[in-house]
Design a protein around this nucleic acid. Structure first.
Lengths: 204, 204
DNA sequence: GTCTATAGCCAGATAGAC
DNA sequence: GTCTATCTGGCTATAGAC
């Protein structure tokens, strides 16, 4: 009987290629990273990369396919929280924690760049984004009902802006400076209901 | 007597190449845009591109070199304003107005990508950024003195975050949705001094 | 100053031995 | 499954005619 395909081994190989590629793509960019570079970094040959992935784009996509379960769990945990605003802040905190990775901004920039050039990639990250967006939207709606969030906000638009703020933290990523305190300040004040006091009042 | 170099004509040619290239780089990326593409879009031949620019990178840099006088004027006008916080908001508004350009996010992403690969480009945009950063920092310092801005903020760090917010607006750029109202809200609330009221108060 | 043509290089992906 | 060798195509930048 022929030896069956060793699924565990295959998965490990794929994973090794994905991890090596993520680092190279983040540091040198997609076009400037060759299949041979990836192969070498993963300890195998370029032919093997194309055995596991149909083409270079598929390698890039695999980086973000791994995020799906992680994000889902993050959102589930936040939704289980009693205090909606605190839950938003926790989600932001956990997302921004990755901004301390020295490759964070590199990989985000590369993602933004490739997203218009690969419809399949767009599908993957649209899914990822939707998980976050739905999570934030639900929490903000709950916050409005509880009177802890400005009812003048459109929940979905506000959710999108919170995601943008996290992205901004990634872009300005400086591993030496933790962005989370400022991010908390921004989000807290962004969501707060208006008061009678002038300092935080609207004007438009 | 040989015909002298027509400076005006040369400048117009350079400008045409820069404008055509900016559009292509934003839409297709730096590596995916060939010198021939740029030449065709500008209505001349690839040899001519290399007559006016030493290499493709120099074409890319020229896009941002044009910004220097524009930014300087923007900051000068803001500094002449009496109300520091209003001046910050005006600057943010004017910067964000460009986010309505459909190529806005494309060119920013491409800039972020190329900045680590071309030291000369880094020099150019560091200069641009410094103009903005210095402007915002001065205004925030004035705001603190006037009691209109939270004295707990580090002026320079706050200035950097405001630039990040503008960048975030660029990234989420959707030509159909004006980011300025939300941006005003974010900046206003970000800078405001703490009050006795819980809604906008600090907690860390 | 502007063109055409091309040298010279290097990438992605495949073929076929093992 | 994994390798090496190679094919094919496309790019930047230059050379030299006009």
């Amino acid at each position: 009987m022929p030896r069956p395909v060793d699924l565990e081994r295959s998965a490990a190989r794929r994973e090794a290629i994905t991890v090596a590629a993520a680092d190279l793509f983040a540091r040198h960019g997609f076009e400037n990273t060759t299949a041979t570079d990836i192969a070498r970094a993963a300890g195998l040959s370029s032919g093997t990369v194309f055995y596991y992935f149909t083409d270079k784009r598929a390698v890039f996509r695999s980086i973000f396919e791994r995020d799906i379960p992680v994000l889902r769990e993050l959102v589930d945990r936040a939704l289980a929280c009693d205090d909606p605003v605190a839950a938003v802040l926790t989600m932001v905190d956990e997302l921004a924690a990755d901004a301390l990775d020295p490759n964070a901004s590199g990989i985000l920039v590369e993602l933004l760049r490739q997203i218009d050039r690969d419809p399949e990639l767009l599908r993957v990250v649209t899914g990822n984004d939707a998980i976050l967006l739905d999570g934030f939207t639900t929490l903000i709606e709950r916050g409005i009902e509880a009177g802890a969030v400005d009812p003048g906000l459109d929940a979905r638009e506000a959710a999108a802006w919170i995601v943008h703020l996290v992205d901004a933290a990634y872009l300005g990523a400086d591993p030496a400076r933790d962005p989370r305190p400022m991010l908390r300040r921004l989000v807290t004040r962004f969501l707060a209901p208006p008061t009678a006091d002038p300092p935080t009042g609207e004007q438009g």
